[in-house]
Amino acid sequence: MTLWKRLFTNNSAPQARERLQILLSHERQVLGGEDLLSSLREDILAAVAKRVPCERDSVKVRLERGAPMSVLEIEVEIRGNVDLGMTKAA
């Protein structure tokens, strides 16, 4: 809303509308993203745990959002030295 409009009209509803639209588009992204990350984390945990013993807390999933591209960072800690021979056996 331009300064002109703000000074010369006393309609407050357009302000409310604009603020809500901006706020909610942001909140939907963040809160929706939370759900996406937690389901990704569950999927990764299930996939890794099928091959290597792995605890729930040792899977970390982070999402760095950027304009040209976003980076999904996955870190899985596994106790001890992983025996690579396991992949052949499985």
């Binding site: 006393n10 309609n11 407050s12 509803a13 809500l20 909610l24």
Partner: peptide
């Protein structure tokens, strides 16, 4: 009040 522009209109809330 909605007609005067002092309250969100039904259409505003529905759209949001």
């Amino acid at each position: 009040r909605a007609a005067r522009g002092d309250m969100l209109k039904t259409e505003d809330v529905l759209e949001i």
